[in-house]
Simulated assay, not measured.
Amino acid sequence: MPVVNNPLPERDRETAGAALQATLADLLDLSLVAKQAHWNVYGPRFRSVHAQLDEAATVARNHADTVAERAAALVGLTADLEKQSWMFQAENRA
């Protein structure tokens, strides 16, 4: 595997990596919440809302892929994204 020479100082890489990993966790949460709502929507505007939620989930997943690739290229990924997600933090505040 080729090594990428990154000119950023270590501290800057860690800061950027932490921000990217938190963003990745939030995008994954968003895609899951949108897909859950997508399958549970009902009512008179079902079709349009269903399609919009599907699109939102797809866009969030696509952006998550981009963020994950950049984070991996910059500093590598930690195994524990769950603790960085807003859903995990909200559940554990109560």
Rank of each mutant, 00 (worst) to 15 (best):
V4A: 12
A51Y: 05
L30W: 00
A79M: 12
H63E: 09
E14D: 14
E55V: 10
L74C: 00
Q36H: 12
L24K: 00
L32M: 14
Q21Y: 03
L30H: 02
V3Y: 11
D29V: 01
L77T: 01
Q89T: 09
S31N: 06
E91D: 14
E82Q: 15
A19C: 14
R47L: 13
A25W: 01
A64Y: 00
Q21M: 15
L32N: 15
E91N: 12
A34D: 06
A94S: 13
R93H: 07
A57P: 00
T66E: 14
A16R: 00
D26I: 02
V3G: 10
A56R: 03
P2N: 13
H50P: 06
V59K: 09
P9C: 08
V4M: 11
D54K: 07
P7G: 06
T15K: 09
L81D: 01
S85P: 05
D26H: 06
A37F: 08
L28R: 05
A19Q: 15
A51M: 11
A18R: 14
A64S: 06
N62F: 03
M1K: 12
R11L: 08
L20G: 01
V75S: 10
T66L: 15
P2H: 08
L20I: 06
E69I: 11
H63L: 15
G17A: 05
V3W: 10
S85E: 01
D12N: 10
T23E: 07
V41E: 04
A90N: 03
W39T: 09
S48G: 11
N92D: 08
E14M: 13
N40V: 10
L32W: 10
A25M: 05
R11F: 05
T58K: 13
H50M: 04
S48W: 05
V67F: 01
A37S: 09
F88K: 03
E69Y: 09
A51G: 02
M1W: 12
L32S: 14
F46I: 07
E10P: 06
A64E: 02
A72C: 07
T66G: 08
R13F: 00
P9V: 14
R13I: 00
L77Q: 04
R47M: 11
K35F: 02
Q36V: 07
K83I: 11
Q89Y: 04
P44R: 08
E91G: 07
A68T: 06
